[in-house]
Amino acid sequence: MEFGWINLFGAAIVIILLIPNIFYAIKNKDIENRCRNKIMNAIEQIGRYGCIILMWLPLFVWKFEFKSFEIFLAYLVSEGLLLFAYVFIWILYFKKRSYWKAMALAIIPTFIFLISGLALHHWLLVVCAAMFGVGHIYVTYINSR
């Protein structure tokens, strides 16, 4: 399965990931980032925006495709299950915040981005996903203590 210039699956995944984050930001306007490590905050943001863009835009990818139907199927199933878990944990987190939920909400999108990058052989997305994961998990850990 080959894509043109835009991966609609990736764009849909990004939109689904962003919806609960937007609701959270609107509801909790006064929450402060307690992480004072500027390098980790920068790594998180570079990784975040890199992933958001690269999930749907195939920059530096010669052939933007799944190598087989089996890889495409594994991609759909794994991304679908992870998205379901992500939204479900957000619902639980909206009801009552906890450390494990915050960490799960940091880890799950990292795996979503990594799986997308690996399945599509989009190595820049894999690098951004790793950066996002390291930064986001660290910042979440600091903010959840």
Rank of each mutant, 00 (worst) to 15 (best):
F3T: 03
G4W: 12
G4A: 08
I6M: 08
F9D: 11
G10T: 05
A11C: 06
A12Q: 00
A12G: 10
I13H: 02
V14E: 13
V14I: 15
I15W: 07
L17F: 02
L18F: 13
L18I: 07
P20Q: 08
I22V: 14
I22K: 01
F23E: 03
F23L: 13
K27G: 05
N28R: 08
K29F: 06
N33K: 11
N33F: 09
C35E: 04
I39M: 12
N41K: 12
Y49E: 02
Y49K: 03
C51M: 05
I52A: 14
I52W: 14
M55I: 08
L57Q: 00
L57F: 15
L57T: 11
P58Y: 04
F60L: 14
W62L: 07
K63N: 14
F64G: 04
E65L: 08
K67E: 15
S68K: 09
F69R: 14
F69V: 12
I71T: 06
A74N: 12
Y75S: 06
Y75G: 02
L76F: 13
V77R: 00
S78H: 11
S78T: 15
E79P: 08
L83F: 04
Y86W: 07
W90I: 06
Y93F: 15
S98F: 11
Y99V: 13
K101L: 11
M103S: 02
A104K: 04
I108V: 14
I108K: 11
P109D: 00
F111E: 00
F113P: 03
L114C: 08
S116I: 05
G117I: 07
L118Q: 01
H122I: 09
L125C: 03
A129R: 04
F132V: 02
G133P: 04
I137N: 01
